[in-house]
Every structure is written in structure tokens, then in C-alpha cells.
Design a protein around this nucleic acid. Sequence first.
DNA 1: AGCGCAGTGTAGCGCAGGTTACAGACGGTT
DNA 2: AACCGTCTGTAACCTGCGCTACACTGCGCT
Lengths: 232, 232
Amino acid sequence: MIRLAVPARRAVRRAGFTVDLPLTRLSEAARLRVEQQLQRYAFRAGAPVVHRGQTVNGAYLVLKGRLRVYTVKPSGAEATLYHLTAGETCILAINALFNDLLYPAWVEAEADTVVGIIPGGLYRNLFQAEEAIQDLTVKSLSTLVFRLMDELEQVHSLRLDQRLSAHLLERANGQGVVTETQARIAGQLGSSREVVARILADMASRGWIETGRGRIRLVDTTRLAQMTRPGG
Amino acid sequence: MIRLAVPARRAVRRAGFTVDLPLTRLSEAARLRVEQQLQRYAFRAGAPVVHRGQTVNGAYLVLKGRLRVYTVKPSGAEATLYHLTAGETCILAINALFNDLLYPAWVEAEADTVVGIIPGGLYRNLFQAEEAIQDLTVKSLSTLVFRLMDELEQVHSLRLDQRLSAHLLERANGQGVVTETQARIAGQLGSSREVVARILADMASRGWIETGRGRIRLVDTTRLAQMTRPGG
DNA sequence: AGCGCAGTGTAGCGCAGGTTACAGACGGTT
DNA sequence: AACCGTCTGTAACCTGCGCTACACTGCGCT
């Protein structure tokens, strides 16, 4: 990682701090061009970043925060496809960049998030010349492929309570507390609020968790982890 | 596309014909090295190609036929993740090549299939030097990402009868006939034979299809296509 | 011809989970 | 304190579909 202090150009919200970019081994010339042309945008938690069908003309680097990529079912319910956390690159953007396709999903900021965009033309140039960019691209795409395959497998082979357990463990903070509304969780899992409430109530009755308004405290993480395994 | 006549090295079944490789714009030197080092394997329809957890050390080019990549649920039922048809590259192989990961799924030949394997070391070299290989890699990975996202969205938002309709339309030959057993179709959709039979019976009773032993004739493709749209 | 396997047809049961419909409960605002 | 929007708790109902169980029917093989 190299440190880049990049000025925000047309940021939704000002974000004037220094971040790590995954651009190690980049030539000096290339780094300068990135510094000059990188566009930085900040989004508040919950803000939409990209909507479906939007043309995307660059590589998206998540500099801070967390993005959620999701689809919307005909019923209106959402379903999360995958997440991107700080230091990762938004692959679909690169994707669309090369294939000239429209963005096939929605993206929103899950926390306060800063995104750096490398314009399409520059990225294409860098990709040809810079090994670091080639590696970044392949690695990002590969990672995404694995994530999607994993998600697909889980959707096929796990029940909702198992996926919910996994979600809680994944999103708990250091104190074992998840601060999300049940409606939000339901959206992430592609289910409905009532079903999530039903499962949470069951878990609470077994003493595995404690529920509160906008928060869930994990009590028996061992059992929860057990749940996530097929047949648990 | 350039024409390459590559000798089979340790082919499961001899396959002595010429195929198209997606290696246009490859330098002469590189093409020679590929010709020398490309390993060719032939698989009969239904034969296993890669099993889960296997280490894969090269790029897989599908020269002829069709591969199916799938997972196996704890119940034993399969679920297709995606397909690779002739001219496409097995991305996960490249994936594992770069990330040094184990193959996360099973692969089988769906028809009689010939696969060309470019050894890992050679591929890595080519990737650095040859723009054609870079493009192939990114394009293959991108395509896979889109396929997986699409599959994930469909699993979330379509009922089984809708996905079955889509499957039939996709797998029908020129005469509108699908030659697959119901059990096989069920496996592809991650469902069970009985459920597929139930839905097919319903479709047949409406006059949309005609069923037979190992074959399904599509009668009303318009209605079937209508089905595949959410809310159809 | 007759056997047997592989494939299809059908019916019934049960469960996960989506839907509908309310009834609180918490917390911020005035 | 009163109010109201947001969130949770719960119960009843219904559908999709997986599972069990068994009868039937092409089709190849001896």
C-alpha cells in the first residue's frame, strides 16, 4: 500500500483525509496521473451510489466505509449480492468498463463511505502498462467470482435461520452487538421483516441472543456459529 | 480467432480435429508456445472434469462441447452455477491460478467435450506479455461475474416453473426439442425430479409442451418465454 | 418373449417461509 | 406529558416445493 493524499474534486460531501490505495508497485508516472485524475466522492450511510442500468465509466475504489451491491425483486424486496469494504475495488465497474455494459445492480453505502473513481480511459491505459493494475483487476474480479459462487451456494443449501446466524456473526461489532433494524436485515437476506422477527424471537427464546430496538446482542456465539454449518 | 491444429497429449479419448481458439492478436512466438504446451483432453458427455477441492494449475479453454459447473447440496442434490460453451475459457481455473485457491465447485462435461489446458506458468507469462491474453482473462472473468449475478438474481426472484421455462428455452435444439431426462433437468435447477415432473405435467396439460421419454417438445414457446419474465 | 433398468406419472404429506393484519413498545419532538 | 413515527412482537393463513411412495411405460438385452 502506498499513501496518497488525493484532493476531492466533486465530492458529495467533503472528505479531506489521507487513505490507503491498493496500488503498490505502481510506477511514479502512473501514480501521479492517478493522483491528478482520481475523483473522490463521499456518501452518507444509506445513500445510493449507483442505480441499476446506470452507465459506469471507471474503476471504483472503496477508500473508506462499505458498499452493498444488491438487486430488487419484483415484490420490491431487496437481496444483497455482495459487499465491498475499504481497500477493495468495485469490479463491476471495471467490468462494464471493458465490456461496455450497463450496471446490472444497485449499490448503496452501508456506512459512511468514500469512493475514488479512476476514469475509464485512464484505467484502460494503466491496465496495459502497469502490472500492478493488471494484478488488481484480476484479483478483484476473481474475488468477486468466489464471493458470488459462495453466496449462490449458500442460497441453495442453507435455510434462512442459518443464513441469518451467519449474517449476525458477520455484522457484530467487538462487543457482539449488531446495530441494524430487523427490516434492514431482512432486506439483506432477501426475506421479509416478519420472518426475520420470527426467527430472532426463536433464537432469543433459546437464550442465544437478546433483541432490542435497532440492536441485537449475541449471547451464545458458539451456537450461532454452529447453526451456519449445513445441517447444524 | 486463429486456427490451431494442436496434437492431443494425454487425451481421455482421441480427438484429432482442428478447432478455433480465442487467441486472436497473439504474437507468433506466443502462438508457437501455446501450440507446443497446450494439453488437450476429451471427455464424454456426463464425465467428471474437475472435482471440488482439486488444485487447478492452468487455464481451461473449452474447444468443443459444453461444461457444467455446479455445487452439491448437503442433501446430495446438485445445483448448476453456470455453463461454459465452446470458445469460452474456464475462469475459475485462471482464478485459482492467480489466487492460488482450490477449485470451489464440481465440473462435468455436459456434451462430448474437448478441453485445452494452458499450463499455469505459461499462462502467467503470456498474461504479462500478451495483450490478447489480458483481454481474454478480463473478459472471461467479467462474463462469469455477470452470469453469476444473473443466476443469483433469478434464484431470488423467480419461481421454479419460471426458471424451468427459461431452462427449456435455453436448451432446446433447432426443432424446439430438449433431449434431457427430467432428473437431469431437476439437478440443473437444484430441485428434485418429482417437482420438475409436476410442473412439466402442468405445462403439458395446458398444451405448452409435449413430454416423452428423455425428450420434451416445446409447442408454445411464446407462452414459455412469457413465463420467464417476473410476474409472468 | 420376457426380464429388468431407466425414466415418467401422480398423489399426499409436511415444512420453510412469504403475506396479512394488528398490537404494542421505544424514543425523539414540541 | 402528549404525540407520532419507527420499530418490534405475534398469530393465522397460504403457497411453493421438497420428500416419500408406488404404479406404469418405453427400451435394450439375453
